[in-house]
Measured scan of single mutants.
Amino acid sequence: HNLTITQGKLFFHYNPKLCLSEIHKMEEVSGTKGRQERNDIALKTNGDQASCENELLKFSYIRTSFDKILLRWEPYWPPDFRDLLGFMLFYKEAPYQNVTEFDGQDACGSNSWTVVDIDPPLRSNDPKSQNHPGWLMRGLKPWTQYAIFVKTLVTFSDERRTYGAKSDIIYVQTDATNPSVPLDPISVSNSSSQIILKWKPPSDPNGNITHYLVFWERQAEDSELFELDYCLKGLKLPSRTWSPPFESEDSQKHNQSEYEDSAGECCSCPKTDSQILKELEESSFRKTFEDYLHNVVFVPRKTSSGTGAEDPRPSRKRRSLGDVGNVTVAVPTVAAFPNTSSTSVPTSPEEHRPFEKVVNKESLVISGLRHFTGYRIELQACNQDTPEERCSVAAYVSARTMPEAKADDIVGPVTHEIFENNVVHLMWQEPKEPNGLIVLYEVSYRRYGDEELHLCVSRKHFALERGCRLRGLSPGNYSVRIRATSLAGNGSWTEPTYFYVTDYLDVPSNIA
């Protein structure tokens, strides 16, 4: 807008934040220059609390790290170098490059900038070799853009010569660093050979998330399962459950009422301010606690030095998902009996873990797994792929695949051998790939016309006998059925096997 004052003059007093240069501009645009008398524009009460600059400061050096910015700028000295009290560095987070010096300023003089007072450097006698002032900004957020400017702080001049310097606002972004852990990993099994893994992005990506790394490792069953005799009275049979499938998407929606109208769909109840505040506090606490764990609990591995020492970490090797089922080394339970199943799973520490690289999504279907087997899954978020990966501390989750139908069934015939004193040795093959492992066998036998009897055969007993022995049988026709019990439950009964026990007292003698 054009402003013209045809008559009258300007009068400025007691404006401590208004620089004289701005008042002189007002004289020019209003056409009143030359009308004012000496005392109409006070030299001592206008701009006496402001830094009124008329020179431009330029930054000469900028260096960044993930949490620091090192700045240096060209030296500046007023005509009387004693008038320079120091520099004021202003900075704040700036997602967009549209910041002005006066953003967030209120009537009390406060604003949204963080201000650092910096002492002037030592003055050199040689004007050509003056030290460049600077400042190291610490405690910054990774991968965050900051708006920065600097200006001088000078003393009051009796001659009211307006001098000083100020830089333009520059924008500097800190470097990326390792992201925080992925949030809320959930693993479920939808079949006997697959596990579905879902997660949420890290709360602090500290860069642009480029991919996720998912490692999985087959877990050995508890050692007590191999040692305890679950045929003993009072000892509860062990059981394991597989990871249940995901709930429906509708039930997972946030901010939804727990109660549904019987007449149909209901609208979600909005969260109160107290609920939102509580969630923010919980989120802040979780982030602080995660940072504490990362800094205190997890110790970084030592990389190899120039002395030739090897990095103890196993090298990563990509495998196809079809090879995942046989990740671990199978060892027989008892070496003397080769027909026992290889369900003991000690994992070799030198073995390469299978892994998958996930790009542009937060889910993965891990296939080719062994049925009813526990897996430990390790999830890392990465925001750099080359020249070397920059990934987060791992988040861990466990899951067990679903049982395989008929995996616990005894394959092959049940054979028998009759000894003296009416002892019958029953023999059968253990299931080759049971659900988890076989903890015991149930032997059901009966003599024709009598009630059915049951015998429990422990895992250890089966390994020693290759089956079991029935003792003290009365003469007669017998039928026997056997079924295995694994961590997933009972298998199917075998087809009945028949044998006849004679009275050993009636056996004919070869003595003449």
Rank of each mutant, 00 (worst) to 15 (best):
P205S: 08
P205T: 04
G207Q: 01
G207I: 01
G207S: 08
N208P: 13
I209N: 12
V214K: 04
F215L: 13
W216N: 13
W216Y: 15
E217H: 15
R218M: 15
R218F: 02
Q219L: 14
A220I: 11
D222V: 09
S223F: 04
E227H: 10
E227D: 07
L228G: 07
L228D: 13
D229F: 04
D229A: 05
D229N: 13
C231A: 05
C231F: 03
C231S: 04
L232M: 13
K233L: 13
G234K: 04
G234H: 10
L235A: 08
K236F: 02
L237W: 14
L237D: 10
P238Y: 06
P238K: 03
P244C: 15
S248W: 03
E249L: 09
D250L: 10
H254L: 11
H254T: 07
Q256I: 12
E260H: 15
D261L: 11
G264P: 07
G264H: 09
E265N: 15
S268F: 04
C269E: 10
K271Y: 05
K271M: 10
T272W: 06
T272H: 06
D273E: 10
D273T: 03
S274P: 04
Q275I: 04
Q275C: 09
I276P: 03
K278T: 09
E279D: 04
L280T: 10
E281L: 07
E281N: 00
E282K: 04
S283Y: 11
S283P: 02
S283K: 15
S284P: 02
S284F: 05
S284V: 06
S284C: 07
S284L: 09
F285Y: 09
F285Q: 04
F285A: 08
F285P: 03
R286A: 05
R286K: 07
K287A: 02
F289S: 01
F289Y: 08
F289M: 01
F289A: 03
D291E: 03
Y292F: 11
Y292A: 02
L293A: 03
H294E: 00
N295K: 03
V296A: 13
V297E: 03
V297Q: 01
F298L: 03
F298S: 02
P300H: 08
P300Y: 04
R301C: 03
K302C: 14
K302Q: 11
S304I: 15
S305A: 09
G306E: 08
T307V: 09
G308P: 15
A309L: 13
E310V: 04
D311T: 13
P312T: 13
R313S: 08
R313K: 12
S315E: 11
S315C: 09
R318W: 15
R318M: 08
R319W: 09
S320G: 15
L321Y: 11
G322H: 13
G322R: 04
G322K: 12
D323E: 07
D323G: 00
G325Q: 15
G325C: 15
N326T: 05
V327Q: 11
V327I: 06
V327L: 10
V327E: 09
V329F: 14
P332C: 07
T333Q: 12
V334R: 12
A335V: 12
A336W: 06
F337M: 15
F337W: 10
F337A: 12
F337K: 08
P338L: 09
P338I: 12
P338Y: 08
N339R: 12
N339E: 12
T340D: 11
S341F: 12
T343H: 11
T343Q: 09
T343E: 07
T343F: 08
T347E: 11
S348W: 08
P349C: 15
E350W: 05
H352Q: 09
H352S: 09
H352L: 09
P354C: 14
F355V: 11
E356Y: 11
E356G: 13
K357Y: 13
K357T: 11
K357Q: 09
V358F: 11
K361Q: 10
K361S: 10
K361C: 05
S363M: 07
S363G: 12
L364P: 01
V365P: 09
L369E: 02
L369D: 03
R370T: 00
H371I: 13
H371W: 08
F372V: 01
F372R: 04
F372D: 04
T373G: 14
G374A: 03
Y375C: 12
Y375K: 00
Y375R: 01
R376S: 03
R376K: 08
R376P: 00
I377R: 00
I377F: 07
Q380A: 08
Q380V: 12
A381S: 08
C382F: 00
Q384A: 08
D385C: 15
D385I: 13
D385S: 02
D385R: 10
T386A: 09
P387A: 14
E388R: 09
E388W: 08
E389Q: 10
E389K: 11
R390P: 11
C391P: 01
C391H: 01
C391Q: 00
S392V: 03
S392L: 00
S392G: 01
V393E: 10
A394W: 13
Y396W: 15
Y396L: 13
S398A: 13
S398G: 02
S398F: 05
A399Q: 06
A399L: 09
R400T: 05
T401I: 09
M402R: 03
M402I: 07
P403A: 01
P403D: 03
E404L: 08
E404N: 12
A405E: 11
K406S: 09
A407R: 09
D408G: 02
D408F: 00
D408E: 03
D409K: 12
V414I: 12
V414T: 03
H416K: 10
H416N: 09
E417P: 04
E417G: 07
E417T: 13
I418F: 12
I418P: 09
N421C: 08
N422G: 08
V423M: 07
V423I: 10
V424S: 01
H425W: 08
H425Y: 09
L426D: 08
M427E: 02
K432T: 13
P434K: 06
G436V: 13
L437G: 13
L437K: 03
I438R: 02
I438N: 04
V439F: 12
V439W: 09
Y441I: 00
E442H: 09
E442M: 05
V443T: 03
S444R: 14
Y445T: 05
Y445Q: 04
Y445N: 02
R447C: 08
R447S: 12
Y448W: 14
E451L: 15
E452R: 06
E452L: 10
E452D: 03
L453A: 13
L453C: 05
V457K: 03
V457S: 01
S458D: 02
S458Q: 05
K460D: 06
K460R: 10
H461F: 11
H461G: 11
H461E: 06
A463G: 12
A463E: 14
E465W: 13
R466H: 11
G467A: 04
L470G: 02
L470K: 01
R471T: 07
R471Q: 12
G472Y: 10
G472W: 13
G472Q: 06
S474D: 04
S474E: 07
S474V: 12
G476S: 01
N477G: 14
N477I: 11
Y478V: 02
Y478F: 07
S479Y: 07
V480A: 07
V480S: 03
R481I: 05
I482Q: 07
A484G: 14
S486G: 15
S486N: 01
S486D: 01
A488P: 01
A488V: 13
A488L: 13
N490V: 05
N490K: 05
N490W: 11
S492A: 09
S492P: 12
E495T: 13
E495F: 14
F499S: 00
F499C: 03
Y500L: 10
V501M: 07
D503W: 13
Y504N: 06
L505S: 09
L505N: 11
V507R: 12
P508R: 15
S509V: 10
A512V: 09
